[in-house]
């Protein structure tokens, strides 16, 4: 039996939570992710879909994925590197063809499983002229651009250092974001590793007693810099990331297990801590950084048809 899981038209962090719940409800059945009606997808939604594909592979049989019907959206799935990454994750029959060299995204979906991969991410950012892009589109200074690379390095290393499993990183800019009438950068870093609870359990669970769980583990790492390592220099990467995101007026949210913890800026209305989410392994990090200029700069003339998917806010 195959169970169809409908992918919501907006494939983002909310959709990811809903997809986990639906997929968990299917039990041991093979899954078919029906993304035909997707009209908008961000890096978090797409890397999350990849994670779902890996997690719900049963006895070596991967789930089936149906791609968006909209040519614009399907093209976007190609440009951001989703199709290439999905080839080893899903059974696909209608995948749009990848065309080399056509990516216009800030960082295509990239697998991170080692320190070398983190170097690769930073090199890619350099190749994509991250400084110029952040300066032109978001009003960031050259020093900000370097700090952005530093932030991305730290957040990607989180996978290597703590997950004990590979993950994915993706970045995209959007003209508007939900209620934010500014250009934003969306960063997604997702893995299927041991998660925060698993990473900290052996060293720290005892002192939390019955309170120990996904939420307390997230709180310990996110707020207090607790880590499984005894080295006092460890556990500070997240602190630096939070400090930098806060300075830029951005949002950071980390989902792990059944909980999500967030630093919530004034433009966002999510809860600082959400519990009792549908369980999912690993850690999923979302960072949203708004432009420093008050309004989005003029939209450049489209370079080719289909450069932007459907009604997306990119």
């Amino acid at each position: 039996m195959t169970c169809v899981v409908s992918v919501p038209p907006t494939l983002d962090s909310d959709a990811f939570d809903a997809l986990i719940a639906d997929a968990n409800a299917a039990g041991e059945q093979r899954l078919l992710f029906d993304a035909r009606h997707v009209r908008f997808a961000d890096p978090y939604g797409m890397t999350g879909l990849l994670a779902l594909g890996v997690h719900f592979t049963r006895d070596g049989v991967p789930p089936i994925l149906q791609f968006p019907q909209s040519p614009d959206v399907a093209g976007y799935f190609t440009r951001i590197g989703f199709v290439a990454a999905a080839e080893h994750v899903f059974e696909m029959h209608d995948a749009p063809r990848s065309r080399a060299g056509e990516s216009s995204v800030l960082l295509p979906i990239t697998v991170v499983g080692s320190s070398d991969d983190v170097h690769g991410v930073i090199e890619q950012l350099n190749e994509h002229r991250i400084g110029e892009l952040l300066s032109e589109q978001l009003g960031y200074s050259q020093a900000d651009a370097m700090a952005f690379s530093m932030l991305l390095s730290e957040v990607s290393q989180n996978i290597v250092e703590h997950a004990d499993a590979p993950g994915w990183v993706g970045i995209q800019t959007y003209r508007r974001w939900r209620r934010v009438d500014k250009r934003v950068v969306v960063i997604a870093v997702i893995d299927l590793g041991v998660g925060f609870r698993g990473s900290l359990e052996r060293e720290h669970a005892g002192r939390f007693g019955e309170r120990w769980g996904d939420a307390t583990a997230l709180e310990a790492a996110f707020i207090h810099g607790v880590t499984r390592f005894r080295d006092p220099g460890r556990g500070q990467g997240l602190k630096q990331i939070r400090r930098r995101v806060g300075r830029w007026g951005g949002k950071i949210a980390i989902r792990s297990g059944t909980a999500r913890i967030s630093d919530v800026p004034e433009w966002d209305d999510s809860d600082p801590m959400t519990t009792e989410l549908a369980p999912f392994p690993g850690a999923q990090i979302l960072i949203v950084l708004p432009a420093r200029s008050p309004a989005p700069p003029p939209e450049p003339a489209p370079s080719r048809p289909g450069a932007r998917p459907g009604h997306v806010r990119r």
């Binding site: 370097m146 690379s149 530093m150 730290e154 290393q157 220099g233 500070q236 990467g237 630096q240």
Partner: peptide, 15 residues
Amino acid sequence: VRVLDYSCADEIVAK
């Protein structure tokens, strides 16, 4: 040096 992240600074300078 272009990018120096916290982890690398910890390993080089602090240690």
